[in-house]
């Protein structure tokens, strides 16, 4: 550890615990904070405290929220009949960035991972099943990642929702826009061919 005052050492230690930040970057960030105007540094500290104190999970969709219901669940302009199921709030944010989807969400807070001992009971699947009837959902879009665990989760949920009679769809998998077919792996290409659409 570098030779510097104890409070700085503590800050460097805390910063280097963040993902993708090593000790060198942590020192650079700590020095930056020290050289910042006091008001900016205080705002950063306050925002970290605020996010921990005021943000919890939405009662309905389990997205991050600073009130009982998140801004999406309480927005009456969003389609209440369509539910997009995602693994994490990060995935929700990515879909929201498209500004294309106008329905609501359900955040599972993870994915079924048998090798890590994570089963359906540790996720928000039971809450999802209950929501279908209560909120009179017409369509559930399964937007878990196209990985083995993501597929397992999607398959499990579709099995659980079968009796409800709700329409279940899975997000398409295939060639990314701007991609080059020559460099795309065969699994993705196979999925792209399987999920092809008729041109009108």
């Amino acid at each position: 550890m570098v030779n510097c005052p104890q409070p700085m050492q503590t800050l460097i230690q805390c910063l280097s615990g963040l993902p993708g930040i090593g000790e060198k970057t942590a020192i650079r960030l700590a020095l930056f904070i020290m050289n910042q105007p006091e008001v900016d540094a205080m705002q950063l500290a306050r925002s970290i405290i605020d996010v921990r104190e005021k943000v919890s999970l939405c009662r309905k969709c389990f997205n991050f929220s600073d009130s009982d219901l998140c801004s999406i669940c309480s927005n009456t302009k969003r389609d209440p009949g369509v539910l997009c199921v995602v693994e994490s709030p990060g995935d929700l944010m990515a879909i929201e960035k498209t500004s294309h989807y106008r329905g609501r969400y359900h955040v599972l807070q993870g994915v079924i991972a048998p090798l890590e001992g994570i089963g359906p009971d540790q996720l928000k699947i039971r809450e999802l099943v209950q929501r279908i009837d209560i909120d009179q959902i017409k369509e559930v879009i399964l937007a878990t990642n196209p990985t083995v665990n993501g597929n397992a989760t999607a398959l499990y949920i579709s099995q659980q929702l079968l009796v409800s009679g709700v329409k279940i769809t899975r997000i398409a998998q295939g060639v990314p826009s701007g991609g080059d077919i020559e460099y795309i792996d065969e699994v993705t290409l196979r999925n792209a061919l399987d999920g092809r659409r008729e041109m009108k």
């Binding site: 048998p114 083995v148 597929n151 397992a152 398959l155 699994v187 196979r190």
Partner: peptide
């Protein structure tokens, strides 16, 4: 990739047994 075994990842029981 020599074999992606996609048939396994499309069936919940096969995924469970395969894991």
């Amino acid at each position: 990739i020599l074999n992606p075994y996609t048939a396994i990842s499309q069936d919940i029981n096969k995924i469970a047994y395969g894991n």
